[in-house]
Simulated scan of single mutants.
Amino acid sequence: MNKTIAQKQFYLNVHFFENEKRESNAQFKSVSGLTVHIDVENLVKNPEKEFKHFFPSRTRFPNLILKGVLLKDLKVIEWCKKAIDQYQFSPTDLKVKLVNGKKESVLAWNIIRAYPVKWTVKKQIEKENSLAIDTMELAYNYFKLV
């Protein structure tokens, strides 16, 4: 019975630096911000008749919010520190995967040109040279569902 329950559980893997030779990954408790908004512009054809035409204009993507992880990869930690502490941004591609209990990818999103804009660190674990991250917020250009 426990095996059946374990197979139904899902988790989120985030693969950092997808466009580089050495990628890093981390398992987060939650991911939000995988949303697209299409702005609409209106054109008033004849102001006296109050008739408007609505047209789609541009797409907007809110920040990606990653919550709950123990980051052990120094490359990801340094990437965040450079952006937040030194204002040095290195946009990179990410892949967010929803994985089932059988370790099969159910859904995946390619996040294009992401960079950190905010993070909340719970604590640093000296022995493991890692950080417990409560929240990591990333701005990005757009995403594609894979």
Rank of each mutant, 00 (worst) to 15 (best):
A132T: 12
S30Q: 03
L64K: 06
D39C: 02
P56F: 03
L66S: 01
F17H: 06
L74K: 11
A114T: 04
I112F: 03
N100A: 03
I84P: 03
A26M: 07
Y140I: 04
I38N: 14
A132R: 10
S130R: 04
L98E: 11
N129F: 10
L66N: 04
P62N: 01
C80R: 09
E128F: 12
K118A: 13
V121E: 03
R22P: 00
S130K: 02
T35R: 15
K21S: 13
Q27F: 10
N25I: 07
D85S: 09
K45G: 12
A139I: 12
R22K: 08
M136Q: 03
V99F: 04
N13C: 13
R113V: 04
L98R: 13
Y87H: 11
Y142Q: 08
F89W: 10
F10H: 08
R58D: 06
D39V: 07
E23N: 13
I133C: 03
P62E: 03
Q88H: 11
Q27S: 13
K52M: 02
E137S: 06
V69W: 03
K144Q: 12
M1L: 01
I111V: 15
I112C: 06
I125W: 11
D134V: 08
F55K: 08
I65Q: 13
F10A: 02
Q88L: 08
